[in-house]
């Protein structure tokens, strides 16, 4: 479903070439719950940007849902992101002064979905994260946890093949963080592929597979038993 072969990424910093990813090969199957761990500078963010079609590798191949994306143009990548990837960020990245519903509709807008269908699908997505009664609220009227739920609804609304979460609990208190992670777990149990980048072992504990990065390489790829939900 998600295939990375010999990914290699070099950055030019000043006159020096820095190797951010060094021959990384990973396969992720549909329905997996994977966490990506590693210290900062380990290459995990670069890896996620590749998988999220925000960046292209210097060498190597990425296939998302049967589509080779490693050599697509900017606009073609945008289209793949729109159709296949759902992003959840540490800072939520919701549009201020825009209602939860409109925030969730945003990917559909760029996907060219007709107006009536947009509203229906955004509503369904919000319902799924338990915010049906907060659709008209703007981010400032929502708690951090609720904002992150809106962001998750936005990630889900276009029925992506994979949910990419980058430190999704980083800006939340631990209780709310647990709620959010349980939501991810719930979504995963419903069949959605989830990739979570984190440096917190508790967060990684929700995943059934952990990928550890160091110095641009995968140093460990471990399976772990599913954590019991409360």
């Amino acid at each position: 479903m998600l295939v990375c072969e010999d990914l290699h990424k070099d950055y030019l910093v000043g006159n020096e070439t820095v190797c951010a990813l060094d021959d990384v090969s990973v396969r992720v199957e549909r329905g997996e719950f994977l966490s990506v761990m590693g210290p900062s500078g380990s290459g995990k963010s670069t890896f996620m940007n590749m998988v999220g079609c925000l960046d292209t590798p210097t060498r190597g191949r990425i296939v998302v849902d049967g589509e080779t994306v490693s050599e697509l143009s900017r606009d073609a990548l945008a289209e793949v992101r729109n159709r296949k990837i759902g992003f959840v960020f540490q800072q939520f990245h919701l549009l201020g002064r825009t209602s939860a519903l409109d925030n969730v509709e945003l990917p559909l807008l760029y996907g060219g979905v007709p107006r009536a269908e947009r509203a229906v699908r955004a509503e369904q997505a919000l319902e799924r994260v338990g915010l049906r009664d907060r659709m008209g609220h703007v981010p400032a009227q929502l708690s951090g946890g609720q904002q992150q739920r809106v962001a998750i609804a936005r990630a889900l609304v276009n029925r992506p093949v994979v949910l990419l979460a980058d430190e999704p609990t980083g800006a939340l208190d631990s209780a709310t963080g647990v709620e959010i992670m349980e939501l991810f777990q719930e979504l995963n149990e419903a069949g959605i592929t989830v990739l979570v980048v984190t440096h917190e072992p508790e967060v990684a504990g929700y995943a059934r597979r952990v990928l550890r990065f160091r110095d641009g390489r995968v140093i460990a790829d471990e399976r772990q038993p599913a954590r019991m939900t409360a």
Binding site: R74, D75, A78, R81, F89, H93
Partner: peptide, 16 residues
């Protein structure tokens, strides 16, 4: 800038 980044992440093309 952040809004632009977000819009791009969810599928906005350069033209959008």
């Amino acid at each position: 800038t952040r809004e632009i980044g977000l819009r791009m992440a969810v599928g906005a093309k350069g033209r959008d």
